[in-house]
Amino acid sequence: MFDFKGFSMQWYRELFHDTRMLIIVLNTIIVALLSALFSTIFGMLGALAIYNAKKRQTKNMLLSLNNVLIVSPDVIIGASFLILFTIAGVKLGFYSVLLSHIAFSIPIVVLMVLPKLMEMSPSLIDAARDLGANSWDVLTKVIIPFISPGIFAGFFMALTYSLDDFSVTFFVTGNGFSTLSVEIYSLARRGISLNINALSALLFLVTLLLVVIYHFITLRNNKASGLGVQKR
């Protein structure tokens, strides 16, 4: 593709000498970590809310609403969030990107945690209450430990979703704030440059790392699911 003249760290060096690029990388990481953290918390609460819904219809309705953002095309999410932030007076930039990432990661976390909750035998909660646990004890000593594999998986999924996202970010990023994928896009529109090659490799490695971690988490989950109490 290019004349190959041996390996060189030159492009990486160039990449990191570029403070603007460094800031973008940092932005991407901060947005990913924060959005994963918040979406995990809200997603877990959401899964509990769906799990605790008494009526079947309420449960199904909540689940459908939850999945809207998963099935919606990115352009629609991006465009509608753009309108939302403009109306709400949120300045496009760090906060609008962070809020969007939290918003579209929440349903993934819910979908990761909910099966774990469903898997949990309801008698576990009865047993804890029977042994004197109040609602807080039940939540912290039984439910959260039980669903923790789902919570971890949700966190990593949220992290990858955030790192991976281009379309939604592209809509709500405004001027002055940029993430890696938006930066790659605008560089790529200008044509091939070795700068992006280095950047791409970086993003690729990070994604791969996350995938491997996620893989190990699911592997552990599968092992753990055989651990449930035997049922007839």
Binding site: L65, N66, I77, S80, F81, I83, L84, I106
Partner: peptide, 13 residues
């Protein structure tokens, strides 16, 4: 979250 980021955006569109 459902109201602000799921229902409201669709209505706004």
């Amino acid at each position: 979250w459902i109201v602000i980021f799921v229902i409201l955006p669709i209505l706004l569109i």
